[in-house]
Design a protein around this nucleic acid. Structure first.
Lengths: 364, 364
DNA sequence: TTGAAAGCGCTAACAT
DNA sequence: ATGTTAGCGCTTTCAA
């Protein structure tokens, strides 16, 4: 690798000025064909690739959009790997008769958002830079990224409010998912409440007249709260009093779903259980089965999130799926809009959720 | 958003020179605490975020690594989405009683590679820029990226040889997966052949003395070729002649697996079928079942790739899993090495595969 | 159609 | 410990 070629090298070689080189690359039609050919030949011969930094500096835009996630791993938990080590593995394989080669769990959400964002960014001529929030107080990855991009998309909760406010002073910020964070940012969300209301409506329509239970999320979860609101609204709409339903609070884990069912069954049989997320719903189904209660024959169960396991579980779980790819795409669209028109009013986009009706709520 | 603050603004406000501002940010200990505080206060008040472009230009390094994938989508196939349109959807949900909300298929591979790369990059103080290869002749996304990063990781086959060679002239390149592309690049691969040989050995040890079949991939697949080599080696090692086995060529699709079985069964019963990938193996199992041939009682079947469905299928499929996260991590490690020592010899790292022995090859 | 030259916002010598 | 200044490699007026 010899010294990197620059515009000057190309200009020399083609016998033109650097301005002409720049023009050939940016406004080819503004240059006489013969000259253009000479320049392109030089570019090619020298393997010239323009410096993004220099361009970014001169143009005052980078052509890069940033996507910032909450940490999807505890960096510390990652096993050691050092392929440069003296004793680096030399075996070609290992044999495993037990393990199920855990597929990365739960993170599909982020992957799909990423994919949607990348597609939309590409369509608009941007490239994507990604960052993951890991709490290392000595480093602020998000600022690292903010300094290198024209606009930033952050997943709800991944950046503290004050930091976000600072960054928004410098570049456009779009918040993805979660509740609105003030009305100063562009924002993409989903209709948690409406979708939960609809699920509840569907379940109530199918259920016996009997005890209905809601398995809520933790108190501090904004998503959980919205889902509760939706449930409550549907209950009222069905002409029932909210006092007629039983509410148990869980923490979004499967185990808390199991515990909730144990508790609920002490109060007698149930005709439907509506959970604030899939994990709790799946835990509940396990517990019902353990107690000899059949789903959906004896009790209907619904979840929320649309995790993959909801589809493969027996019975398959009725749930609500996040439009993950569209979340990513919508975020980029909002960012692109603001980049074009920095003064526009902050805008909030609400994407429809997809309700998947499956066996667990079908009194066949 | 007022004009973006720069070092000059910060320096003015703190009553120091721009050099001092720069120092506070990069070598805080080289500045007197009192001065440092003043500067940091100014930084904070102004919401100053250093320009990555200016830094990159001055430092002659960007602190960014690039990861370039082959297109995981046909951009054209993506449904329309325009959240800014006048008639943008206003409904909160849709109800779906049939569909299984397809989880993005097959691309888990890339997601996990990405995750591994991001983790390792973060550990080393880099951020990650991603690009996806889509064939748009008018744009060269990969060059876009190459101009903005200190080093580039490309997935095998995602970049034409000549383009790659050009880029490698400018920045370090690491090739991921696939066969070596010349010996001029650092390279991370897996031991396709060895792992397939081991799978074959395991299956042969378990199988009846009967007809053994290999379900090969398309001729032009380098992976397919390596897997074939491994199979052939194991067959020889078992003291059999390669002529004793039946070989059918498929194209890595499930349908081709089904067809292959139909064809194979015409030649009489089989005792084992070793497929070059999971999709074909799963297709084969379906076809066997349709013919009343039981797996694994009558015939053993193995796959390759370790897709998720291999674990949930009935019977669970014996397969070989790619160390995807480690591929990403290893690539970054190689890149970091080369960045430190540009003159080092190109290095090729071979990662062990993980053989997962499951029901489909277990004569219980 | 082309060239000269002035920045873009930073870092890193070198001076003080 | 801090300030001055010369680039880093490009884009973009403004002139020619």
């Amino acid at each position: 690798m010899t010294r990197r070629a620059t515009v000057y090298d190309v200009a020399d070689r083609a016998g033109v000025s650097i301005a002409t080189v720049s023009r050939v690359l940016r406004l080819p039609d503004a240059v006489r064909p013969a000259t253009r050919e000479r320049v392109l030949a030089a570019v090619s011969e020298l393997g010239y690739v323009p410096s993004g930094s220099a361009r970014g500096l001169a143009e005052r835009r980078t052509g890069v959009l940033g996507l910032y996630f909450p940490g999807f791993d505890a960096a510390e938990e990652a096993p050691e790997l050092d392929v440069l080590a003296e004793d680096a593995a030399t075996v070609g394989f290992t044999v495993d008769r037990e393990a199920d080669a855990e597929h990365a769990s739960g993170m599909l959400f982020l992957d799909e958002v990423l994919r949607g964002a990348e597609l939309e960014a590409w369509k608009r001529g941007f490239v994507l830079m990604i960052g993951v929030g890991r709490d290392d107080p000595t480093r602020e990855t998000v600022r690292d990224i903010a300094g290198r991009v024209d606009g930033l998309m952050v997943l709800a909760q991944s950046v503290p409010d004050d930091v976000l406010a600072r960054l928004a002073q410098r570049i456009p910020v779009v918040v993805l998912s979660g509740p609105p964070r003030g009305d100063r940012y562009d924002h993409v969300t989903v209709s948690n409440a409406e979708a939960m209301a609809e699920v509840t409506r569907l379940v109530l329509a199918e259920a016996d007249r009997g005890r209905i239970a809601f398995l809520a999320g933790p108190e501090d979860s904004p998503d959980g709260a919205e889902r509760w609101d939706g449930f409550a609204a549907a209950v009222s709409a069905a002409g029932m009093s909210i006092d007629e339903v039983v509410v148990v609070r869980g923490d979004f884990t499967r185990e808390s779903g199991r515990r909730a069912v144990a508790e609920l069954l002490e109060g007698g049989p149930l005709s439907a259980l509506i959970a604030a997320n899939d994990q709790m719903a799946l835990g509940a189904i396990e517990a019902f089965r353990a107690q000899g209660v059949r789903v959906p024959e004896d009790v209907l169960v619904s979840g929320f999130d649309g995790i993959e396991e909801a589809a493969t579980a027996r019975p398959a779980l009725t749930t609500v799926r996040q439009p993950m790819t569209d979340l990513g795409r919508a975020a980029v669209q909002l960012l692109a809009r603001r980049l074009q028109d920095p003064g526009a009013e902050p805008m909030s986009v609400r994407l429809p959720l997809r309700i998947l009706v499956r066996e667990s709520t079908s009194r066949a």
